[in-house]
Design a protein around this nucleic acid. Structure first.
Lengths: 194, 194
DNA sequence: TGACAGCACGAACGGTCGTGCTATTTTGAG
DNA sequence: CTCAAAATAGCACGACCGTTCGTGCTGTCA
């Protein structure tokens, strides 16, 4: 890896931490330059525009999520174990990976009314994951773990609703029982899917 | 109502719309002055600081929510009808009241890692509503609508998770079936609570 | 040795930010 | 109608914003 891409990656990693806390809007070139110990202009040259920086950050977050959550889960046995792995890893990822929790949660609320490339990129990653969950549920039907008339789209909707609420209750309301509540809700969802 | 408070209320109303779209961080004195047709300084004098402006906006949003959702729901018959009214009105409020949808959703993700009075005020309103839902569920138990061993805290958690996911799927992902999905999830929740 | 990218730097640009002052206008009570 | 008080405007400030520009290193290749 050349010096350039190395530096760029370091910048993006730092940007991910900042964005997970304050949102993508609070990502300022100046602040990012300060924390990385670079000059504003030197940092800026790597991206060409703030919009490009934001896009790079979002794509990097998506890659991380695929590496840490999706890919390992797909190695689990087909059916319910895989579905469960997707859930567990999603929750763990949000607790551990970034100081501000799940960056997609922050970005979702921030960009939902702000059309543009950043929003488009985010929506794409979210739809991709939604489909991943649906596919895993479909396979669980084939394997006989879930009942045949299960509405997999509805399953994915409720899957997302639980992970969202986990973030909301744990991060915002500061409730320490959020993981247990989410776990219980997910178990009930699995139960209903049998 | 004196001229002053009248103007102030108009400012806050405008601020609510702006904040529901771009978040509380994007609420700038200058932009707000422009849309209300006032001077920056004249507008500023009503609040004294930006933090006070933000707090006023959050409190105003909370009042609106109580007026439009909580209060009318409490006039519904005790038990399941009241619980259902809380749900229906919460969803309708988010669709209709503000251009950016539910402002608490936006603020929740924005402030979850930013300690301060604004966050505190927001958390308070959310906890209040959570308790309102729990109390309504408790009453539904007394009325014999819900089963006696229902975990009302868990019920409130899943209640919030559905409304959150409704916003996420509808606003961000742009899915038109979000209301139907949320409705279906809520009906399933009620079913399990019987 | 000389030419040439790649990379980072400091300085500066026009704007907007929040926030102070001091006037000026508007309001409402006597 | 008067006059103090309240409300608003005008102006200026320092700080930070994203961006552009010219420049200087440093290592590679001819």
């Amino acid at each position: 890896m050349s010096k350039g891409t190395e530096t760029k990656q370091a910048i993006v990693d730092e940007a991910l931490e900042l964005a997970s806390v304050g949102g993508i809007g609070s990502l300022s070139i100046g602040a990012l330059a300060k924390t990385t110990g670079m000059s504003k202009s030197g940092l800026f040259a790597h991206f060409g525009s703030k919009e490009q920086l934001q896009l790079t950050v979002i794509r990097s977050a998506a890659e991380r999520f695929v590496d840490m959550v999706v890919a390992p889960s797909l190695k689990e046995p087909r059916g319910e174990p895989r579905v469960r792995a997707l859930f567990e890893r999603t929750m763990r990822q949000w607790e551990e990976a970034l100081p501000g929790g799940c960056i997609f949660y922050a970005l979702g609320a921030e960009l939902d009314d702000q059309p543009g490339p950043a929003r488009d990129a985010l929506v794409e990653t979210q739809n991709d994951f939604q489909e991943t969950v649906e596919r895993a549920a479909q396979i669980a039907i084939q394997e006989g773990h879930f009942r045949e008339d299960l509405d997999v789209e509805q399953f994915a909707f409720e899957f997302a609703s639980i992970t969202n609420a986990f973030h909301y209750a744990g991060r915002l309301l500061g409730r320490s029982d959020a993981p247990a509540r989410a776990e219980k809700a997910f178990n009930a969802l699995l139960e209903r899917s049998h």
